[in-house]
């Protein structure tokens, strides 16, 4: 039976993991390789690295990080952030990433999804979408640049288009629940679930064990992503998995 995936997400800037990191017993808490190994040992199913480096030149650092991670852990990982061209995608995949996630760049140039999936396979292309509920409550709009720009595009139309173009997975972040720690945006996730048949990674809002269980019990997603919850050591991956197992949700232990 296919298991539900638990995915820690690491924001990397200039080769260092940023966002509060509070692992007990780790010397280099900001080192992506050390953290990747820690999560591998904890039983994480995948990792996501988001490169939040500002400039293109500094991206070479990210390529080195990816190479190092790939040479030290034997689990799948996705790299996202700032990938704008086929050449950018190729560089990350060649360095050892299994998948790339495309967000703002795909909105600006949807053809990148089509070309990327054609060349590297649908399974390599994760469409990352940030969305926010419209003020009139009639649905959700796609937002880009970390939520600063509302594209006016309808979420459900966009994910359908993305999958038609060749995205093999959707990483869906709700800007309404992100950082609030009151649980994933189940309503948004369910709506997306209804219109696409690719796996969905839920993101934004997880604050407790029960939030993981909710998203899987309602079958809103195939994987759940969390960042600060794991980084601050509030929960360990294996705690989440033990809890889910008790709830009858299939996990890899």
């Amino acid at each position: 039976m296919l298991t539900k995936r638990i995915i820690p997400c690491l924001d990397v800037k200039d080769g260092k993991v940023v966002k509060g990191i509070n692992f007990v017993g780790l010397k280099e808490v900001g080192d992506p390789i050390t953290l990747a190994k820690e999560y591998y040992e904890q039983g994480a199913d995948e990792l996501v690295f988001l490169d939040i480096t500002a400039t293109h030149e500094q991206r070479d650092t990210m390529v080195q990080v990816v190479q190092q991670v790939a040479s030290e852990i034997y689990m799948p990982f996705t790299v996202g952030g700032g990938l704008r061209s086929i050449e950018d995608i190729k560089r990350m995949l060649r360095a050892g990433a299994d998948k790339v996630s495309l967000n703002s760049a795909a909105v600006k140039d949807p053809d990148l999804i089509a070309q990327g999936s054609q060349i590297f396979g649908n399974q390599c292309i994760v469409l990352a979408v940030d969305a926010k509920k419209r003020d009139d409550g009639s649905g959700w709009n796609v937002v880009i640049h970390g939520g600063r720009i509302d594209t006016g595009m309808d979420l459900l139309e966009w994910v359908q288009k993305g999958v038609e173009l060749g995205a093999g997975e959707i990483l869906l972040t709700s800007m309404d629940t992100d950082g609030v720690k009151q649980g994933y945006d189940l309503e948004m996730l369910e709506a997306v679930r209804q219109v696409v048949n690719v796996p969905i990674i839920a993101s934004g809002g997880c604050g407790s064990l029960d939030h993981f269980a909710q998203v899987f019990e309602k079958d809103c997603a195939d994987a759940a992503l969390a960042a600060s919850l794991f980084h601050y050591g509030e929960l360990r991956v294996q705690d989440v998995k033990m809890y889910l197992k008790q709830k009858g949700i299939p996990v890899r232990l």
């Binding site: 995936r5 093999g168 048949n197 195939d222």
Partner: peptide, 10 residues
Amino acid sequence: VRIPHIGWNA
């Protein structure tokens, strides 16, 4: 089922 089949399976 979801397609692609992505993830850890027994």
